[in-house]
Simulated assay, not measured.
Amino acid sequence: MSLAYAYPLSRFEPAPLVDLNDKPTRERLSGSALKGFFKLSEAWNLRDEEACNLLGGLSSSAFYEWKKKPDRVLEVDRITRISYLLGIYKALHILYGDKLADQWAGMPNRNIIFKGKTPLEYMQEGGLLAMQTVRQLLDARRGGM
């Protein structure tokens, strides 16, 4: 006799995994990722230096080139960073009104994670892992975790 665990049926279906190591996948996603990032940068009133830092230390000249000609294929690290940031942007707009959602990243925060810094400062200093942490925090607040 075999014992098998029975789990209740659920409508939850995990999203299919996206293989960012696959160049055609990155080619397909890069343009919309950059477009979304530039809109996020504008909504958050990011200085170019802050935007470059969030992208993993992109040079100013490369950043201006990307703005002029966004038709390019991003590396795995950069597309992952943008994915986290756009997820943060979306979560903020679900949790708060548009004005607060767009100001939140630049406001000092007393949450233990941020230690009085702004979430933007935290993400610039901590890079990809900090972005992941902020995304998880906001998803948990939304009830998604």
Score class of each variant (00 low, 15 high):
1 M>Q: 13
4 A>H: 13
10 S>F: 06
10 S>L: 08
15 A>P: 03
18 V>K: 07
19 D>A: 12
19 D>S: 10
21 N>W: 10
21 N>Y: 12
22 D>C: 14
23 K>N: 09
23 K>A: 11
25 T>M: 15
25 T>R: 13
26 R>Y: 06
28 R>C: 05
28 R>E: 08
29 L>V: 02
30 S>W: 04
30 S>M: 07
31 G>S: 06
33 A>H: 02
34 L>W: 02
34 L>S: 06
35 K>E: 13
36 G>Q: 03
36 G>E: 07
36 G>S: 09
36 G>P: 07
38 F>D: 01
40 L>S: 03
41 S>I: 02
43 A>Y: 07
45 N>C: 11
45 N>V: 11
46 L>H: 05
46 L>M: 03
47 R>L: 13
47 R>N: 09
47 R>H: 12
48 D>Y: 04
48 D>W: 01
49 E>D: 14
50 E>F: 00
52 C>G: 13
54 L>Q: 03
54 L>E: 08
55 L>I: 05
57 G>V: 01
57 G>C: 08
58 L>T: 14
62 A>N: 10
63 F>M: 09
64 Y>D: 10
64 Y>I: 03
65 E>Y: 07
68 K>D: 12
69 K>T: 12
69 K>S: 13
70 P>H: 01
72 R>C: 08
73 V>T: 15
74 L>C: 02
74 L>T: 00
75 E>L: 12
75 E>W: 05
75 E>V: 14
80 T>S: 13
80 T>M: 00
81 R>I: 08
88 I>C: 02
88 I>Y: 04
89 Y>V: 06
91 A>Q: 00
94 I>G: 07
102 D>R: 05
102 D>A: 08
103 Q>G: 01
103 Q>D: 14
104 W>K: 00
105 A>E: 02
106 G>N: 15
107 M>T: 14
108 P>V: 04
109 N>R: 02
110 R>N: 12
110 R>P: 03
110 R>S: 12
111 N>K: 12
114 F>G: 01
114 F>N: 09
115 K>A: 14
118 T>K: 11
118 T>N: 06
120 L>N: 00
121 E>S: 10
121 E>H: 07
122 Y>I: 04
123 M>F: 04
125 E>H: 09
127 G>F: 04
128 L>V: 14
128 L>Y: 04
129 L>S: 03
129 L>D: 09
131 M>F: 08
132 Q>H: 12
132 Q>I: 08
135 R>T: 11
137 L>D: 03
140 A>P: 02
140 A>K: 13
142 R>C: 14
143 G>E: 06
145 M>Q: 10
